[in-house]
Write a protein that binds this DNA or RNA. Structure first.
Lengths: 339, 339
DNA sequence: CTGAAAGCGCTAACAT
DNA sequence: ATGTTAGCGCTTTCAG
């Protein structure tokens, strides 16, 4: 049977006390385990609590203690492929500390964000996690909040703040080095919009690795959308340019998959003639692409976890300002295998 | 500047009162707007509150009122493509009511689920939303909770409970009718695992529509994984069977995309020779497939919204038991266009 | 129109 | 070992 229309009144410590024949404070001691209570009395109280299905009112406890064991999370950009894993990692880490999480969706609107920060403060959260999708710095949320704040993924531009993000620059360098190590020298670069930070970082990393060896890209960078369709177009463009290429570095798995498809349709052998790399390690793309795609996992779950841990630390008075970068993982698959 | 190590003490109504030279209760009246306060006094109080950056302590207010304007959400299965849109819809609807949401991830573990329900009750949430990914009934969460519960997507097996889910059976019928309306008669059916409720419902709907016209599937149903790879395999299986087919009904967009790819590689013209349909309207799949895929949108966002609305209603004493099914939308695209 | 006082449910000194 | 009391910050009678 489900709950009936009129909910039963919530049972309080005083109900338990009455039933066990003791005072309220004895109930509190018995249940919290923090006072000296005779064994037999404790048993009686536990039984009464059980029979009444008593759940202590944490509001009252928090009002007294000043702690709610709750943190606020504001998704500052839209929810998406990047932010959901971060959120999940944070949830997991917080659950281990028995901390609950109040979630708001800021939708990339800073007015709304402010509004939600106020709502969180009124709810007396012990800390705030700002989770943003953009792999770029964002404005600090406000001067002097009464609780610690940690930024996840999109880090704060103020280095007094604490942020945790993914070291995607290193990931992109790993990709480039992997290509060099497997003998490729003539790289093309295909990414999303030119103005996106992700495009910029990945290009810069790729070029810096090549520069160490004294050469550059074999074809000028191609910019478009973060889509498979653009990947297909770009690959065709490369093919028609007749520039000699032995690897295509893509800004995302989606783009890479489009590139793979177009190459396949033009009977270019991957990885023999051309290697292809992605970025994200997005299971759906990576498993379905032919051949399976070498890519970089941004460890987003871990970014979420570590951001949450950092916040908990700060809540315990051990704040660590600065931007922490979580390592990415190169995932080599067949699309770059040695010929 | 960010928050410094030692956070400033939180400012309370009594600070505001002191600064405005009035009593605490006058502050309360002025700020809540619920008491009679002289205009000039109110101004003074508002100004003081502003200067001190006062945020009222909702814990205290809730302790008094018995309302927290907070609901708990438990994702009972893993987060996934299905549950995230539901969650987003719920967040959106709750935000409109100025209700916050405490989120837990039950991970399909009912012990954990119970644990989180208790945690929510201790936090005095006004209601609980159980969001499950499985398109099938689930056990009612517990006898007689002190707050209303609404189930989203995975509905409760107890019809005293309130649930909101997607009418995917109707969606699957729409697909079948659409194929008949565009002249197809020889349908194949490719889905995920045989034991999954989604497979079962979609097959049953398809067959019932065909039965109305007095015929059945042209090929026995094919079951596999919810993956593109399986879609490709299944399509090859169909081609090798040499059974005459003019449409492939797929249990998901991913499968459909695999089917499309395999057909394309075998130079079967879609939609001229064979029509293909998916299920989900998952942008990434649908946009990248060639030709664009006819599919069904399960209105998951709307399921989340309506579940949240239903919960708010129940919290206001107007519970409506039963399972409510949100309409799906047929999205016709080129993969079923008339020849 | 304003303030003093009681109380929401809990915890922790302090007293017994 | 147990009970009494004060108080967390707010809202709301009830007096003035």
């Amino acid at each position: 049977m489900a709950h009936s229309g009129s909910s039963p009144r919530r049972v309080t410590a005083s109900d338990v006390a009455a039933r066990a024949g003791v005072s309220i404070s004895t109930v509190s001691k018995a249940l919290s385990g923090r006072g000296a209570v005779r064994h037999e009395t404790r048993q009686r109280i536990l039984q009464a609590a059980n029979e009444l299905n008593y759940q202590s009112n944490q509001l009252a406890a928090s009002l007294y203690s000043g702690r709610t064991d709750t943190v606020g999370v504001i998704m500052s950009d839209r929810f998406g492929r990047l932010t959901v894993p971060v959120l999940l990692g944070a949830i997991e880490a917080l659950a281990e500390h028995e901390i609950a999480l109040v979630l708001f969706d800021g939708r990339g609107d800073s007015i709304r964000e402010q509004h939600y920060i106020d709502a969180l403060l009124r709810r007396q959260v012990d800390g705030i996690l700002m989770a943003g999708a953009g792999l770029k710095p964002r404005e600090s949320v406000r001067d002097s909040l009464p609780v610690p704040v940690v930024y996840a993924l999109a880090w704060s531009d103020d280095d007094e703040d604490s942020s945790v993000t993914s070291d995607d620059a290193a990931g992109a360098r790993d990709i480039a080095r992997h290509l060099l190590a497997t003998g490729r020298r003539k790289l093309a670069f295909v990414s999303g919009p030119r103005q996106d930070a992700a495009s910029h970082v990945r290009l810069a990393s790729t070029e810096s690795v090549l520069a160490e060896q004294g050469f550059g890209l074999a074809h000028e960078p191609l910019y478009g959308e973060w889509s498979e369709r653009w990947g297909r177009q770009a690959a065709n463009q490369l093919l028609h340019s007749h520039v000699d290429i032995d690897a295509v570095v893509c800004g995302s798995d989606q783009i890479a998959r489009g590139v793979l498809e177009a190459l396949r349709e033009n009977e270019v052998d991957v990885p023999k003639q051309v290697a292809v790399t992605g970025f994200d390690n997005w299971d759906v793309m990576v498993e379905a692409s032919r051949p399976p795609l070498t890519t970089v996992d941004m460890s987003l779950h871990e970014v979420g976890r570590q951001a949450a841990e950092k916040l908990v630390q700060a809540m315990n008075g051990r704040a660590e300002p600065g931007v922490q970068r979580v390592d990415c993982q190169l995932i080599p698959r067949e699309s770059t295998a040695l010929a």
